[in-house]
Nucleic acid binder design. Structure first.
Lengths: 240, 240
DNA sequence: CGAATTGTTGATTGAGTTCAATGCAGGTGG
DNA sequence: CCACCTGCATTGAACTCAATCAACAATTCG
């Protein structure tokens, strides 16, 4: 890995792509400086593991670029992906002993990492940060609960349609936060197997649904990882 | 309803059954007094609705006694229960505009209700409360994510076994928090239909699984709402 | 007691899994 | 440059578990 990645510029927060959306958004200059001192940036390659399920929770992190997956194993070794993390999302378990799920980079990624002990202390001393983290956690809980509905009640077709819609929304110009502009051409950061693990399906079912949606003209599949949404409204209907 | 339920004793927090476990646990006397002033206790009958999905979020609450369900509807009208709330659990969506799910009492219940605006203000002025709420929300997020695994990957048998194990743990002497002592005789606060909605199954499948577990000697069913766990270890194996 | 609600049981169906074969792209080395 | 491998993805066929449809039993309630 390039050793330059580990150098610490005077204050990397200032140029941070997620500066206005992540939990550090409300901090003032002095606080940012302090936070900057206890954190470091780390670049991850697709496939790199950042946190291991069950490990002692020593790290927390903020996603700056890229997409990561949170996952856990079933007793029989299959994987269930618990969620995906996009830029400005928070990773890890503050104020807890154990990391409750594994975190792995799906694409090349850039994260802002803290020792949990440092972060916990900082958070307790800076209520504005803690408040942001609370808001984010509440939002994430809502999102996760809505996803339960998907897993518990939806058909394979509905699951994949919903997945594609969500992807197109969260993958849109990674930079912008405000406008929820969805894009129609997307490069999936997940393999078929990983999509299956997100949706609680098998790879074969995912593949068949892709094929069917393509045959029906809802989407086009220029290559394995590329999807073009041709009829968004119709796709949204299927996701109902 | 008994009007005595609405009287406000000088400080009902002092005698509160969940005083040491709920988010108010770390507050000092003065803070408790203030909180006491903005909240009120409300008794609910089984079946009463406390919050409606999609409504403006005007209330938040703490569960003191009883079991409530959080739920949402699918487009085609079926219900998915997103989670259950037990004593000391927190309900509602602080710092948010909309209530993201409905809340209904499954048993008679006692809750401690706040206007969201009052609560939000109080929370922002009292970081210790906000911290407790954050810890609780993080724990709830972890629990919810583990439940996703259940919905996404488990068979009907595994789902029901896991449900019974969890119930027996969370229903145990509602008073105690520390010791995780599970009980072997429980009165279910849910109908068959509601269990089905929690587990993402149909009522028939739930019924069949109950019958089978009874036939296999894992449990006994003295009545519709009563379950006696006869072989906990074996039941836990099924929940794997 | 009869009506209504809730739960159980049986028969059938079907969506999604499993097992198995084939296709396809990106390397690697002869 | 092409043959060959390897890992992912697609397609097909058989099977399975849970959903659905339907009848019936048990409780609850007026």
């Amino acid at each position: 890995m390039d050793p330059a990645e580990f150098q610490r510029p005077l204050n990397f927060c200032q140029a941070c792509a997620v500066r206005n959306r992540a939990i550090c958004a409300d901090l003032d200059e002095g606080e940012i400086d302090l936070l900057n001192r206890i954190g470091r940036r780390q670049r991850l390659r697709a496939g790199d593991q950042l946190l291991w399920e069950g490990d002692e929770a020593v790290l927390v992190a903020n996603v700056v670029e890229g997409v990561l997956k949170l996952s856990t194993q079933t007793a029989d070794g299959r994987e269930q992906i618990l969620g995906l993390a996009y830029p400005s999302d928070f990773l890890g378990r503050p104020f807890g002993q154990l990391t409750p799920y594994g975190v792995e980079a799906l694409t090349d990624a850039l994260v802002c990492v803290f020792q949990r002990s440092d972060f916990d202390r900082f958070a307790r001393e800076h209520p504005r940060l803690e408040h942001k983290l609370l808001e984010r956690t509440l939002t994430e809980l809502d999102r996760t609960r809505r996803w339960m509905l998907l897993l518990g009640r939806m058909s394979a077709e509905q699951k994949l349609a919903a997945f594609l819609i969500e992807m197109s929304e969260r993958l849109s110009p990674a930079t912008c936060a405000a406008e929820p502009g969805a894009i129609d051409t997307l490069e999936l950061p997940l393999s078929r197997q990983q999509i299956a693990d997100v949706l609680g399906l098998t790879i074969e079912t995912v593949s068949r649904q892709f094929t069917r949606m393509k045959a029906e003209g809802l989407i086009d599949l220029p290559s394995r990882r590329d999807v073009r949404i041709l009829q968004r409204a119709a796709l949204e209907d299927r996701a109902a």
